[in-house]
Amino acid sequence: MDFLRPGSWEEALAAKAEHPTAVPIAGGTDVMVEINFDHRRPEYLLDLNRIGDLYAWEVGEDSVRLGASVPYTKIMEHLRAELPGLALASHTVASPQIRNRGGVGGNLGTASPAGDAHPALLAAGAEVEAESVRGSRRIPIDDFYTGVKRNALAADELIRAVHIKKADGPQQFSKVGTRNAMVIAVCAFGLALHPSSRTVRTGIGSAAPTPVRARTAEEFLNAALEEGGFWDNGKIITPSVAKEFAQLCAAACNPIDDVRGTADYRRHAVGIMARRTLTWTWESYRGTAAHTEGVA
């Protein structure tokens, strides 16, 4: 095994081009488990810890450019206002020690259907900035997950940053597991209200071969909210609408039975989380709307 230690982003890209089989290592919280248990014996490890740029974030007008290696702890501490869904999801990852090392770049690299960042990214709307010596491209998050633990990166590409839409409304993240800390999701659900475009986006984790959005459910809810004038009148969402939304979210799942839960349980739980997160976010939207009216 060789340990490659690029000191800059350019050096890292050159190393990855020269050794496409090299395994990047950021926080190491996925990679080292595989090496410790002999599940993986890469020819090259490509250490990304020396590249400061990957640990920085920038808050722009509409989006946050989140360096690939920014640890979850920093997201929780510094980006709660801009990225509430991702901050909530980050808080549910493992333990403080893991959150101090692991980040979204590694979560995307592993692309596990159970990765907690994915539902939040899908719901908020995001693009993955991938780069190689051949050039840079932005991969829409909807096209990023290509199969079980597979992603759209080419062999010579590295993730430099993730561009995530800043929240323009309430966001929620919910996760089912056996306890609060240190738990891989049985299934997870992210929901974001986007009042500026009057749309709702979702993300489902651990209930299909890849993280997915519940598109039919989103379309149904967008139409129902529009029709009922809900965005303007701020009324409570009709229970029948919430119920239908929940059912459509459950229907968007394509889960399996495994040690953590059965397919039926996952479908059921996703429906419950969909209804709850919708209620929570809508309550908070109504609260803010009322507040703004009061002030104006």
């Binding site: 190491g28 919280t29 080292m32 090496i35 250490d47 403080p96 020690q97 893991i98 090392r101």
Partner: peptide, 8 residues
């Protein structure tokens, strides 16, 4: 604080 078993 980190898990030293997961740091290369």
């Amino acid at each position: 604080p980190v898990c030293s078993c997961l740091v290369a």
